[in-house]
């Protein structure tokens, strides 16, 4: 197992790397590399794209690394390696981001990333804190070890609206359903932060590392 965490200048990856190292160790070992090198994706068995901040900044950060978008397409779309996007890394999987104007995403998941509009105006934005996941454990192998109602840590003001309901693997309630996890084929994405979600987050990471799409 060789996990590549893509570092494109979007925040600190120490926590994510340490969480993956811990879980990989518990699963019998594996390398976790934080990399700015597109070629590292070719050597990886699992690819993780974290991301915090604004959609456009993150998209531009990925595109600014020579060969990174090609390497993502080659390894995720063509070679079908397991891919996990986290927070804005998940949002980038969408076709469009609507934050600070329209920005094209990777287009892997049909849909857009738009500002949260909770039905209750008293609800605060960002949606920040621990919310309980709603999902069908049989819907995806990564969810199998989790119990519906498990809490994950969120901090975001924008969320994905997927066109195909089958791409939405989990939601939370925040003045209406908010996409918490998406996936299709060999790719999944979490709006929440598994690396900050204690035991539940580590179960998601373990599910991802054990997954054979």
């Amino acid at each position: 197992m060789k996990v590549a965490l893509i570092d494109y200048g979007s925040g600190n990856l120490r926590s994510a790397a340490k969480a993956f190292e811990k879980v990989a160790g518990e699963l019998g070992g594996g390398d976790v590399v934080v990399t700015t090198d597109a070629k590292a994706l070719d050597a990886a068995t699992h690819i993780v794209l974290p991301g915090v901040g604004a959609f456009r900044d993150c998209r531009d950060g990925v595109l600014a690394i020579p060969g990174m978008m090609d390497a993502l397409t080659r390894n995720v779309i063509e070679k079908k390696k397991p891919f996990l996007g986290i927070c804005v890394g998940m949002q980038l999987m969408a076709r469009w981001g609507r934050e600070h104007g329209d920005t094209e995403g990777f287009g892997w998941i049909a849909g857009e990333v738009a500002r949260l509009t909770p039905s209750d105006a008293a609800l605060k934005i960002p949606h920040m804190g621990w919310n309980d996941l709603r999902f069908d454990p049989s819907a995806h192998p990564v969810l199998q070890s989790l119990t519906p109602g498990a809490f994950a840590y969120f901090v975001h003001s924008y969320a994905m609206r997927a066109e195909n309901p089958a791409d939405v693997l989990a939601t939370v309630d925040y003045g209406g359903p908010v996409t918490a996890m998406v996936g299709r084929d060999n790719m999944i994405g979490t709006q929440f932060h598994p690396e900050k979600s204690q035991r539940v987050g580590q179960a998601v990471i373990a599910g991802f590392l054990k997954w054979k799409p």
């Binding site: 609800l123 949606h127 804190g129 621990w130 919310n131 309980d132 109602g149 809490f151 969120f154 939370v172 309630d173 925040y174």
Partner: peptide, 8 residues
Amino acid sequence: MSLTVRII
């Protein structure tokens, strides 16, 4: 449930 109150 929904978003929970955080104890910090």
